[in-house]
Nucleic acid binder design. Structure first.
Lengths: 98, 98
DNA sequence: TTGACAGGCAAGTGGCTACTTGCCTATAAC
DNA sequence: GTTATAGGCAAGTAGCCACTTGCCTGTCAA
């Protein structure tokens, strides 16, 4: 599977997008932290395994990097891969007040 | 279905992404033109109906606008909706040669 | 009017994927 | 060592979605 497909598949799911939002808000969370915050702030009652699989997809796409430390695994967001989107289809600059 | 889901679903399919590429290359094509060019340049042997449905999804997401003229329907790309992606998850600027 | 051309509508099908369930490994506290 | 915590692996299931098939509508040229 090519990198493009991985990327677009990753951001194609609403739960994964919310996970990215969470990591933007607070980078370097563990799986359990993410589960808790998704449930609290977003009303998402997903199981731990579901979130874990989502994180694996995000990592596969390069949007999330992980760092192990003891029994904890911290997740860090990397928005770099998103650059390929705007490079592929350049965004028409709006001219607000010319 | 909210606008976000429409957008990400639209760009989540490889054929639809190729259609956007085609419209970047040559804007304002008809359905038959797009079918032909997808087959020629990209080796995609999709039926007309399949492409038509893809265009409907792209239009629903606001990525494509259509303009009728007689029995022709021209398709125009609009990359504006993509802006919401980089606004939602700001892209870390790489510092090439500081 | 008749035929060809451009496009639309709708039902059916197969494959992919998100989610669950159950069990397992590893680290740390007691 | 024992227990709790953080996370992983793998099989099964259900729902969604891309694609096909068949037929229909509207436009233009002869």
């Amino acid at each position: 599977m090519d990198a493009d497909s991985e990327l677009f598949k990753a951001i194609g799911d609403a739960t994964r997008r919310t996970i990215l939002d969470e990591l933007i808000d607070r980078d370097g969370q563990t799986l359990f932290e993410i589960c808790g915050r998704l449930a609290m702030k977003h009303g998402l009652a997903s199981t731990r395994q579901a979130i874990s699989q989502h994180l694996a997809v995000l990592e596969q796409a390069g949007l999330v990097h992980t760092r192990r430390q003891g029994r904890y695994k911290f997740h860090h967001i990397d928005t770099g891969p998103l650059r390929s989107i705007v490079e592929r289809w350049p965004i028409d600059r709006e001219e607000p007040n010319p």
